[in-house]
C-alpha cells in the first residue's frame, strides 16, 4: 500500500498530495486506535500464571507409630546398602528394663 501511495504522489498535483496525506493520517489514526485494548478485555485467568516454585526437598518423615521390622536369620556378609539417615543429627529414646523375673506387682 505504501508503494502504491508513493507512486500516487508522483502522479498527482500538490493539492491532491495534501488530500492523500490527510487521508493517510486519518487511516493511520484509525488503525492505531484499533490496537488499543477494549474496555471488556480481561486479565488472563489466574491458573494461567506460573505455578509456585516446588517446596524444597525434605527428608520424608514417617509417623511416630510407623515402624518397619526386618528379622535376621544368619549374618549375611556386610551389604553395601547405605544407612537411611542423611546428613542430619538425630536423637532417639530407648526405654529399657532387665531382670524383671516375671514380676507383675506391686512395683513397676
Amino acid at each position: 500500500m505504501l508503494h502504491r501511495m508513493i507512486r500516487a504522489t508522483k502522479r498527482v498535483p500538490l493539492c491532491g498530495a495534501l488530500c492523500l496525506g490527510i487521508v493517510w493520517i486519518l487511516f493511520a489514526g484509525v488503525a492505531l486506535v484499533g490496537c488499543q485494548p477494549t474496555a471488556e478485555a480481561t486479565l488472563p485467568p489466574a491458573t494461567a500464571m506460573a505455578p509456585s516454585p516446588p517446596a524444597p526437598a525434605t527428608r520424608p518423615v514417617a509417623t511416630p507409630t510407623a515402624s518397619m521390622a526386618t528379622h535376621g536369620t544368619a549374618p549375611a556378609t556386610a551389604a553395601g546398602e547405605e544407612p537411611s539417615v542423611e546428613a542430619e543429627p538425630f536423637r532417639l529414646t530407648i526405654l529399657h528394663t532387665n531382670d524383671t523375673y516375671g514380676e507383675v506387682d506391686p512395683c513397676g
Binding site: P64, L95, V104
Partner: peptide, 14 residues
C-alpha cells in the same frame, strides 16, 4: 523415635 527393649530374664521367675 522410641524403642522399648528388655535385656532378658524377664519372662519368668514369679
Amino acid at each position: 523415635p522410641l524403642f522399648v527393649l528388655d535385656a532378658g530374664n524377664s519372662l519368668a521367675g514369679t
